[in-house]
Design a protein around this nucleic acid. Structure first.
Lengths: 200, 200
DNA sequence: TGTACATCAGTGAACGCGCGTTCACTGATGTAC
DNA sequence: TGTACATCAGTGAACGCGCGTTCACTGATGTAC
């Protein structure tokens, strides 16, 4: 049995405040956007005094890093979730993760912007680094099902990534469909054509 | 002859304060970044009281729009400036404007982010709209030198734009060269291959 | 099992800061006659 | 050319705001014995 019955009254010890603050931050991003994301609002949404976040994150940057880390994890999960939906072939898998990419940027635009606004190389937070690399690995794994680019390793990944990231970014500012006619854009039009590996 | 000799002392009438404030804003963006761009700092850099900007721009949004408008014009000029540097052929022109695109994003990252962070469709400021469309027209004109995409009008533009915009954005966050080896990325690797029109 | 004590987590008040905006004002400019 | 007056552009003081951060504190938890 639990040591004490949790009452609706405020308890001094939250128990899982760190995660609660990250969740609060994600909620604020999704509902009010980046500018509204402050330590004070996150604390308020978590039901805690506004000085509490300092204990867990030190400063605001710390909270942003924690949120971005979680954001990359959600991002990775979204891509993986779409990966096999169309089929098992290399092309279907590639389309799947790109569809996941666009779904994430479309459904959680503020979070998408946040995770790609933190500088990559200088930032040494290990958890963030890991989460970021894991997201990239989803793409790299699928690209390994294709013939490597004649221009060198990683070039296929870069081409696909640039195309889908660019389209996602442009779409977020309302420039996704500047064509006169305006039929919906199909994902296949954007993804560079790669040659699947021949099974021996 | 001028009516009065301009003295180094502060004059009540600036004469060209609107442009001076836009220039001050551009300077701040280039040297200190987006977060440092405030009405008060722009006024200070223009050598004017901090309440002066309100007369010309109403509020902060107004200054941002004016800066972004100028930003689009510089962006357009940068692309045009590179357009013929490699050669007259369609492929060379296309590479040229893409090189200009990347040069602009690389040299003026904060300005680049600003012009693509203002929402496109909802924003009705006519000058900004015009400047933005003019930038797009540079790309559209060069794409007109190629066979139109079988998928419909504007699709070639969208593919090229997505690729180069995505690469530019990723490079700004330090993700432009994630490949193990790390040879410099060549522009031709990124641009989708289009078929030049056959001269009849 | 009970007690003493160290450690940890969250509180609440206070701090200074820079910000955008407002407003009555004043100095400069332009125009009518 | 000169005068009166309206209009315009920039001033400087003041306002309230929300923010991140600090700090002594208190309540809760965990541990040693």
């Amino acid at each position: 049995m639990a040591k004490s019955i949790p009452t609706p009254k405020a308890q001094h010890h939250h128990g899982d405040l760190r995660n609660a603050l990250v969740q609060a931050g994600l909620d604020i991003l999704d509902t009010e956007g980046m500018d509204a994301l402050t330590l004070r609002k996150a604390a308020a949404r978590a039901g805690v005094s506004h000085a509490a976040p300092a204990h867990h994150f030190g400063d605001k940057e710390g909270l942003l890093v924690a949120i971005a880390t979680h954001g990359f994890e959600v991002f990775t999960a979204t891509m993986l979730n779409e990966r096999y939906k169309t089929g098992d072939g290399p092309q279907q898998q590639l389309e799947g993760i790109c569809r996941g990419y666009l779904r994430f940027s479309n459904e959680r635009p503020a979070l998408f912007r946040l995770i790609f606004s933190l500088p990559y190389k200088e930032h040494l937070d290990p958890a963030l680094q890991t989460a970021s690399v894991n997201a990239y690995m989803v793409l790299a794994e699928v690209c390994a099902l294709f013939e490597p680019s004649p221009h060198g390793p990683g070039v296929n990944e870069l081409r696909v990534w640039s195309a889908v990231h660019g389209y996602a970014s442009l779409a977020l500012t309302g420039r996704g469909n500047t064509r006169p006619g305006g039929n919906p854009v199909k994902l296949e039009w954007l993804i560079p054509e790669l040659t699947p590996l021949q099974p021996k």
